[in-house]
Amino acid sequence: MTTITGPTATGTAIRTTGITLTTVRTIAGKEFRSYFQSPIAYIFITAFLVLTHFFFFRGFFLVNQATMREFFGLIPVVFLFFVPALTMRLWAEERKLGTTELLLTFPVEDWEAVLGKFVAALGFLAAALACTLPLTLTVVILGRPDGGAIVGGYLGSLLLGGTYMAMGLWLSSVTSNQIVAFILALFGSFALFMIGEPIVLSAIPQVLGLRSFCAYMSVGYHFDSLGRGVVDLRDVLYYLSVIAFFLFLNVRSIESRKWS
């Protein structure tokens, strides 16, 4: 605090980058811990595990194949409901309590606050996914599953979850009501998922490549190829750019207090 001598360009630049990671980490840590302070975390993980395990093992022994395709097939739909539950609180509650005024007057850039919250929610989702490792282990013990498909499936789940999450986080910042944030995020993610589904695609005319464009924009399309164990850079890039886009919208909506 006391080492600053003047607002020289290099001096401030160095200090800012020094502080950056600390604040992102501090915010992420705080948000991550706060999941476990309420029953939400435990309810979430329990419900997630019960649902996925039930639907997976219901068919697993009938099909009698050591594959996790069924499991990863559930993810895009299950996350539709679970991810908005993780993001709805993040900004809406700050808006309701008025704590944005605290948070955004700390020496922290708006994007650092957004990133911190995103990292926390993604970390929690990763923890929930890690809890399904015993299921993976079961499959590995019972047969010889395709290892690449499993790794790709987990990577895809994290990227797909991250995409829903970036959208949910943004939508949480446009309202002070958590339920509204949840429902908006649910519909938003649902739209992003549905535009690639065959039932919707068949209704879209194939002019100017519109149909393939819609298929390409959907989250499911890229998830399927990752789930086959093909880690294509284009798929990863798709997810990362959609995530970046929604995080950018989020920063803009936090900044919007300045334009009124």
Binding site: T26, Q37, L102, T105, F106
Partner: peptide, 30 residues
């Protein structure tokens, strides 16, 4: 960095403990 700001009606994170909150702010303050 040079300012300590207490907004109107002192908004705070309701579900945090006192110590935990002060530690969080200390972290945010670098």
């Amino acid at each position: 960095r040079r300012i300590g700001y207490l907004p109107e009606s002192a908004p705070l994170y309701q579900d945090m403990g006192v110590i935990e909150y002060l530690r969080f702010v200390a972290g945010m303050r670098g």
